[in-house]
Computed example of a mutant assay.
Amino acid sequence: MYEPIRTKSVHSTPAASDFPHRSRDEELDIQLAGHLAALLAVTDELRGPAAGPELDTAAERLSAEVARLRGGRAPVRAVPGAAADPAPLHRRAHTLASRALVVAASRADTAAAILAAERMDAHTAALAAPRELSAAR
């Protein structure tokens, strides 16, 4: 019915087997650390216009999680920004937290999943607060 392949595959050379590969868990760690680091950067930006102890605590917890995932290397921190409207930053932070939650769940990292879910809730509440005030007028 068909002719069997008689030559060796070019993909199974000794040089190809020497290439370092990362495991799925290592890839998920890298991806999760990236999402949490991006969330930390947005949180740091939010600390300028919406400074408060809750955001400071969240930033410290995010920093600790990123450091844990990166083998102890502390993440680079952003300078608190002076954005006029924090709503776009809250939307971006919510999106980043949801991405981190998906990766943390697939990786079965309970601590990171809880932190991401808490940040999603906090940013949802921050986005809903101005609407409630404007609806009361």
Rank of each mutant, 00 (worst) to 15 (best):
P75C: 11
R70H: 10
P75Q: 13
A105M: 05
P75D: 12
A93F: 00
R70I: 06
L96Y: 00
V102M: 03
L89P: 03
A84V: 04
D29T: 10
T57N: 15
V76K: 15
P49D: 00
L101C: 06
G81K: 07
A37G: 12
T57K: 15
A50V: 05
A38M: 09
E45N: 09
A100G: 03
V76N: 15
P88G: 11
R91Q: 08
A100E: 02
H90S: 05
P86W: 05
L32I: 04
E54N: 13
E65R: 03
A105S: 09
P49T: 01
A105H: 04
R92I: 04
L46T: 13
A51G: 04
A51D: 06
G34D: 12
A82P: 07
P53V: 06
L32W: 04
V42Y: 02
A83C: 06
L62S: 04
S63H: 11
G71N: 12
R61A: 10
A37I: 11
D85Y: 12
R70V: 03
L89V: 01
H94E: 05
S98V: 00
G71Q: 11
L96D: 00
D29E: 12
D56S: 14
A105G: 06
R99H: 01
T43R: 03
P86H: 01
R73E: 15
S98E: 02
L36P: 02
A97H: 01
H90E: 05
D85G: 07
A64K: 08
L55H: 12
L40S: 11
Q31P: 08
T95R: 09
D44Q: 06
R77V: 14
G48C: 02
P75I: 10
V102N: 02
D29C: 10
Q31R: 14
D44F: 05
A78T: 10
A58S: 15
D29K: 12
P80I: 03
D56I: 06
E60C: 09
L89T: 00
V42C: 03
P53Q: 09
R47P: 06
Q31G: 12
R77H: 14
D56L: 12
H90I: 01
L32E: 04
A84C: 04
H35W: 14
S63E: 10
E54Q: 13
T95F: 11
R99A: 00
A87Y: 10
G52F: 12
L101N: 08
A100M: 01
R91S: 04
V76Q: 15
S98C: 02
R77D: 13
E65Y: 01
T57A: 15
G72W: 14
P86K: 04
R92F: 05
E54I: 10
D29R: 13
A87N: 11
G52S: 13
D29M: 08
P80N: 08
L89I: 01
R68A: 09
I30D: 11
